[in-house]
Design a protein around this nucleic acid. Structure first.
Lengths: 153, 153
DNA sequence: TATTGTTATACTCTATAACTATA
DNA sequence: TATAGTTATAGAGTATAACAATA
């Protein structure tokens, strides 16, 4: 070990990178929360809205939000009370209810997506070519994580 | 606009980068939550613990957690009930209570920091030189955000 | 007067367990 | 039997407003 300084210093820099990513992630979360609040949405409601590119079974919504299925009832209730989503029957399975955006829901979702994108930390401080590099690296990270997940189960 | 394709395509790629960062941030949040849960901590409790490198006034903790000061009472109560923190008087100002880690709190905090670092998405999928590039870019993003914040107030 | 921490209150998110209607 | 959605329940985080102790 002492003959090669790389292993330990590599560990250190890996942790530095992890800490930096955690800080940026924290910041991103904060901006997301602010963007959601500007539209009177909680972070969870905002995440649910962004999930609804198409009508989605409530069970699938629970999966997308990484929460228990019982939570989706309340989340859908509150979005529904604001007129942003409706529960539609699934033609193929009468147990299933599909969450679908109303016209107003679509408007709010688009505004949300715009606001979130505009508030992203990457829009300040990086040039176009640097963003390209960042995109490449982040894409690799996501792919690796997805692959690791697929293997483990 | 049509004479120069760059502005619009640049906007598109900027949004792609923002979306990618959001996805990685979401993933990071998820791993953080899992690491916290493995030590029977909620995400908020874990964030509070990581803040406590040194004894911290409750007011400052509220600032670090970006939450209202009234919340810190309950968060400190629960950490205190588990024997991880204590409330110490501030010698210089009798209104202030300093949150300080117990010996057990220090142990849990260190274990948490280790687990969080090991679970970071950047540890899979990136080589050392790529992590160096990522570190450079993320550092720039953080700096730019901090600067923008300082200007706006 | 202003600030620190607390309490009371209300809302949202979260998981667990038990229930119903369908499959 | 198994699955989709709901309800009941309980704990945690969140903000607002009002309060006591201290500055």
């Amino acid at each position: 070990m002492s003959s090669n300084p790389d292993p330990s210093s590599s560990l250190v820099e890996a942790r530095d990178t992890a800490a930096l990513l955690l800080a940026v992630a924290e910041r991103t979360r904060q901006e997301f929360e602010r963007a959601a609040a500007s539209l009177d949405l909680t972070p969870t409601q905002a995440r649910a809205l962004l999930t609804l590119a198409a009508a989605t079974p409530m069970r699938a919504m629970a999966g997308a939000l990484h929460c228990d299925a019982s939570n989706v009832t309340g989340i859908a209730d509150r979005l529904s009370a604001r007129g942003l989503v409706t529960r539609e029957p699934d033609p193929g399975d009468r147990r299933v209810k599909l969450l679908a955006l109303t016209a107003e829901g679509k408007r709010v979702r688009e505004q949300l997506a715009r606001t979130v994108a505009e508030a992203s930390p990457v829009l300040v401080g990086l040039e176009a070519d640097e963003r390209a590099t960042l995109r490449e690296l982040l894409g690799r990270v996501l792919d690796a994580v997805a692959e690791a997940e697929a293997q483990e189960g």
